[in-house]
Design a protein around this nucleic acid. Sequence first.
DNA 1: TTTCTTGCCGTAGAAAAACTAAGGCTACAA
DNA 2: TTGTAGCCTTAGTTTTTCTACGGCAAGAAA
Lengths: 292, 292
Amino acid sequence: MSVAPKRPKGPPLNAMRAFEAAARHISFVAAAEELNVTAGAISQHIKTLESWAGMPLFRRNAQGVELTQAGQSLISDFSTAFDALAEATRALRNLRPNADFHIAALPSIAQLWLPKRLGKIRARFPQINFSVTAMETPPSLSRELFDLSIFFTVEDASTNQICICRDEITPVCAPSLRERTRGGDDFAGMTLLHDQSWARDWSLWSKGAGVALGNSETGPRFSLYSLAVEEAKAGAGALIGHLCLLEDALETGALVTMHHMVCETGMSLAVQLPPASRRRPETDEVVTLLKG
Amino acid sequence: MSVAPKRPKGPPLNAMRAFEAAARHISFVAAAEELNVTAGAISQHIKTLESWAGMPLFRRNAQGVELTQAGQSLISDFSTAFDALAEATRALRNLRPNADFHIAALPSIAQLWLPKRLGKIRARFPQINFSVTAMETPPSLSRELFDLSIFFTVEDASTNQICICRDEITPVCAPSLRERTRGGDDFAGMTLLHDQSWARDWSLWSKGAGVALGNSETGPRFSLYSLAVEEAKAGAGALIGHLCLLEDALETGALVTMHHMVCETGMSLAVQLPPASRRRPETDEVVTLLKG
DNA sequence: TTTCTTGCCGTAGAAAAACTAAGGCTACAA
DNA sequence: TTGTAGCCTTAGTTTTTCTACGGCAAGAAA
């Protein structure tokens, strides 16, 4: 007879969210990072959903996943739904008058560029808690609860993006080291300091400036740019300076430029905002203070 | 410095779902029923959400809840979001070729009216599992995973509603009891059987037919109409018969009508369908078989 | 070839969330 | 006054969810 006693249950919401994130990134690890869990958790969620649906949604390859036909067909419905849910979440959060203001930024920006501006912003909005989350890749502002993000990106015409300054690079070092190469092009004997995630910087500048380097690959690597900056200040060698990140150090003389050639990387330090409908009321003023 | 290490977390999804349901029904109990949990669970979810938001969303009165200003302002965003999510869920479920087909129906309809039709439907779609869930109030077909519902409702012009027949009532009893009142209006000495949720039936008919009843309130009450029907068959007394539910019993002679007056209740036995975009492909044919 | 790296899987145990059950309170109606 | 309807709270249990860690396969690098 099969008169079921219970209402038919939908799949677990968290599993759906995991699927949506994984489908958007086409990667379990990326989804895991976005949701602040381990990849194993995502894997389990997806499996739950697949068993609920009765068919696989991802094809697992050794070097990554891809969506199956079935998975493909769901992505737009799910994205729409979770967009709407993010909107609702934002509405919920914005009920609170002085909710925390969340900023996402590249670690180097968070450490070297932001503090000075943040001071002014805090002074302007003393009742609001500003919190800064450092991360390597920009979060989706339509999904996550960040009120703005600051990263190096290529400029686009979007009105949600406010460009602060071009990313310009040139070698810098401690004053005590400068004399050796003053005016000349002799980097051969110099220790070159590298940032892990900006490994191409030295060769980029070398090419742009037309200056030959002994070997642009060798030298200590740092996982955080600010560590490399500290080493450079201590006289450990030459560093490719991103000028906008070194305002303070150059101003105080803790670091000095080593060459007159300055190259653009093609990126810009830019503020990214959520869609207009979802912004916090303080946003515009905060942006103004960031620019100033 | 307040450099937060973790990404800002949204509120728990289940709490949001609970809020949405509670806000839609303006009742924790109704929400609990829809979500198949206890009211206590809803209460906690709402509390979680309120503490996340930092302000109350419901005002608790002794005889029910009402939304606060803040709660009011959220309802449309949340409804939109969960509508979209329901859509996505449906898409997910419809991936499976022969997924179960879920029917919601009033208990009396499920027991007395549906079985005969369901037999034909099962014969037509042998590979599909049809399951029937009995409930007192129609589910929201845009939220829950039912493929159609069958209830007594007032007719409306909606294309999602297919009217099967008018609800007509007249007293019935076992043949052995009929002689006493044959042709006459003497219900005074008769035991009147009542259905709990159709308590007004006897007085409705009495008024419509112009027949005085000794006391239309007294007599055994049954929580399920089909129990009352069984009692009536056994000769326990007179029952207000809903003709469309008694086709079988009248045909086989297990019950007979007691009076020539038949009243309409103003309701109709009607099939309700989900929005067109979300229907199962089998739906139209199933409806045809239900009508036939 | 061998070794490294990346990204997913699986499992076991731990942590957190969600749920139920039961008792209580308030307001309204009979 | 009693009954009923609704919601609340708390405690304890069940279920879900997550982490940690070892494994495996494929491509890249040595």
